[in-house]
Amino acid sequence: MVSNASPASLPRPRVPWAVVGVTPFMIFAVLFLILPTLFLVVGAFQDVSGSFTLANLGKLWTPTILSSYWISIKVSVASAVMGAVIGAFIAYAAVSGGLPRWIRPTVMTFSGVASQFAGVPLAFAFLATLGRQGLVTIFLSFLGLNIYAQGFNLLSFWGLTLTYLYFQIPLMVLIVSPAIEGIKKEWREAATILGASNWQYWRHIAGPVLLPSFLGATLLLFANAFGAIATAYALTGSSLNIVTILLYAQIRGDVLHDQNLGYAIAFGMIVITGLSNLCYILLRVRSERWLK
């Protein structure tokens, strides 16, 4: 710190520590988060010479690209909805199911682990479980059920969905538990003493109160699955045409022979995950207002 020889009448300028402390983060965020994203978004609306065009977005409407989006959306919706339903049941059972007290912290810990166990190793785990030589496959064939003969294939829509469920279910448990904790036991008692049955309590009170959190969490799971690539890539190589794998191939080798089309694909992904996150936030605001 060098203090300038300022006129004695002026106080020495104070170092604005707050600004100094925040600046590195701001520079980082701009350079490595905001600019790269903006670059792609802008690029999606530019042609090779850099002038404005909607042609790139128009080119998304080709069968290969559309179907890759479609498969991605299907896998994400299926794994999000199934994960949300199963996860909500588990969370409810653990938080307010009247089970022994140790159940709840245990479920939360295991969920924390399982929700982070994704990527390439998860693909390996499911190959070892439901692959052609997998333990469950062999076990089922002992019972006379040859799932591969029945048309099951791990390297397919259902295979990927089942695999994604491994992190989607525990993620749901973690996200939705606070909302379930927010359900006061007095609400049930108040409803009961006013004459409501268990079903009427869920239909009129607990269901509507939990719905925004539940939908919000489902949207978050959707975005989570939609942007994932490592598990799918390790599981199926490039045999399953989901949008992240298409973009991966495009980045690696410009398989579409059109750089700006790559930007458009990325832009489309941002729009989809962005919208679902936006809805998630809106729903969360609504449920927090109720539960505060």
Binding site: K184, E186, W187, E189, A190, A191, T192, I193, L194, G195, A196, S197, H204, I205, P208, V209, W290, L291
Partner: peptide, 18 residues
């Protein structure tokens, strides 16, 4: 409880938030 025709007021209000 549902059949007792009793009214109850709770400490923490317990109004239905929705």
């Amino acid at each position: 409880p549902a059949k007792r025709n009793v009214g109850m007021v709770f400490q923490a209000y317990a109004l239905f938030p929705n």
